[in-house]
Amino acid sequence: MIAPPVIEDAELLAFAAEVGPSGPVAVRGGGTQWHVGGAPDHGVREVRAPSGIVEYRPDEMTVCVRAGTTVAELHAVLAEHGQRTALPDGSGPFGSRSSTVGGAIAVGRSPVTRLGNGHIRDAVLQLRYAAADGRLVTAGGPTVKNVTGFDMCRVLVGSLGTLGCIGDAILRTRPKPEHEQWVQLEDAEPQTVLRTARTATAILWDGSVVWARLCGHHVDVEDDLARLPASSAAQPPDLPPYRWSRRPKDLYCLPEETGRFIAEVGVGVVHCERPDPDPPPVAPGVAALNRRVRELFDPDRRFNPGRSVERL
């Protein structure tokens, strides 16, 4: 007979105790994306999630890591076993060396390699977080496949810390490819590159130049290079600060006044110099549902007051 689970992790319990059952509170990670959804109100008590790797199982391709660990640190450890996660670690054009695992999950923005590596929410297997009443809660589970109960993890990814304070995470890891490189293609149609390149995990486009990140077997990248229009090895471009969300096909009809942009081909994220003047509207029914979720999970609005997923 199995007893109901009990969390005996002292470090996490201490974190939950620090979050406590009342009073406004914000979790500080790397602080690199506090512009997303608005920074927490001034003077709110800040807490920090613990850091460090709890358990790394290269053979299971999972890692349990504290939310306060930087993704860069995590990836350095995983690299010893030729693995990594889909989270942004600042080594590519998106993210910062100081972004934390908890922060990356709470913000929920994938790096430019989403085309090939998937959305970061699909890499999150389990989250342990402090709920609004201060209790420690487990969402999801430790295995690579799991449909036990409702999918709380996906709601927490991108929730900007408004539903719970993430203490640690179990993430799916992926083997690093045998070969990876960025190439720059002049005079290439982004749609053609998307259709042709079989090893591309990212395709960026600024309106004239296409950059592609090719990952995989040496031979497959070679074949791609032979198939694609002439290209040269390159660094990826820097990304402008603002992020627009579009349908992939709408990248080709951005308004004139967009200014300099870098579009993620096949994904639909556009990095721009200015905020989106015309963000996709949110239907009233969906907005109401969003509000209800927040009200039920955090009735006193104590988590990250001033920050909201509705104000992205």
Binding site: G108, R109, R121, V147, F150, D151, M152, R154, V155, V157, G158, S159, L163, R243, S245, R246, R247, P248, D250, E264, V267, G268, V269, P279, P280, V282, V286, A287, L289, N290, V293, R294, V309, E310, L312
Partner: peptide, 15 residues
């Protein structure tokens, strides 16, 4: 679109 705003209610609904 690439990043619909709000919570991932789609993700909550699936499953």
């Amino acid at each position: 679109e690439a990043e619909p705003s709000g919570y991932d209610l789609r993700g909550a609904f699936v499953g």
